Amino acid sequence: MAKKPTNRTSKHQRRDKEEEFVQIDIFKVPAQQAEMYTVLREAVAEETLAIWSDQYGSAKRVSDNEDEGEAVVAYDEAGVEQARLYLNPSNISQAQKARDKDQLAKFLENQQG
């Protein structure tokens, strides 16, 4: 009688799967998605900087929250923070969907403080 295949994974196979991630900022991204995620992340960050620089006068990338990672932050003329978009996978995904519809500026309105 033939032996039934099992769905068990060995410790070695589990370790290989764990090693298939790439660290980007504070986030671990699946290796096969890392390059595309990096491209999208940079595109969202650059467009956000441009939109908020026009809208508020000043915007920059900051890494001031080790729990949330890098963000794009908009400041008014007095240097008071007005909006913040963390460059995390969830926000990048949502922002990219908005970019695909030419609605990034509208999406960013919801990120204002």
Rank of each mutant, 00 (worst) to 15 (best):
A98M: 02
Q94F: 10
N7Y: 14
Q94G: 09
D100C: 03
I92D: 03
E81K: 10
Q112K: 06
I26H: 09
E42K: 08
Y37E: 01
D64V: 09
E19K: 13
V22Q: 11
G79V: 12
W52I: 07
Q96V: 15
G79T: 13
R14W: 05
Q13G: 01
Q82H: 04
G79L: 11
R99C: 00
L108D: 00
I24L: 14
Q111M: 05
K3C: 14
L104V: 08
S58R: 08
A50P: 02
R84Y: 05
E66D: 13
S90R: 12
A59L: 07
K60I: 11
Y56N: 09
A43V: 04
K11P: 11
R61K: 14
N7C: 11
Q55A: 11
R41L: 00
Y86G: 03
V22C: 14
Q111D: 00
D76F: 07
K4E: 12
N65P: 01
A71Q: 06
R99L: 03
L108M: 07
E18N: 03
A2K: 14
V73C: 10
W52R: 03
E20G: 00
Q111E: 03
I51F: 00
V72Y: 05
A31T: 06
Q103L: 02
G57S: 08
D67I: 12
E46G: 08
K3N: 10
Y75C: 06
T6P: 10
T48N: 01
L85W: 01
E77Y: 10
G79I: 10
Q103S: 06
K4M: 15
L104K: 00
H12F: 13
Q112Y: 01
I51Y: 07
K101P: 05
D100T: 01
R99V: 06
F27E: 09
F21M: 12
I51G: 05
S10A: 01
M1A: 15
F107K: 05
P89V: 02
D102K: 08
Q23F: 11
N88A: 03
R61A: 09
L49K: 01
N110Q: 15
E70P: 09
F21L: 14
N65A: 01
K60H: 11
D76M: 12
E42G: 03
D102H: 07
A59M: 06
D76L: 11
I92W: 07
E47D: 13
Q111V: 06
Q112R: 04
A43C: 08
R14F: 00
E20S: 09
E109D: 05
A78V: 11
E46Y: 10
E68C: 14
N91G: 06
A74N: 00
F27W: 13
L87D: 08
S93N: 10
K11S: 15
A71T: 05
R8M: 12
P89C: 09
I26S: 01
Q96E: 15
R99H: 03
A78H: 13
L87V: 05
W52G: 07
R14T: 10
D64N: 12
S10F: 04
S63W: 12
E18A: 01
V29F: 00
Q23H: 12
P5Y: 13
P30V: 00
Y37M: 11
P89M: 10
S53W: 05
S93Y: 02
S53K: 11
D25W: 04
R99K: 04
A59G: 07
V39M: 14
D16R: 02
E47M: 07
S63I: 11
E68N: 13
S58K: 04
Q82A: 05
Q13I: 07
E109A: 00
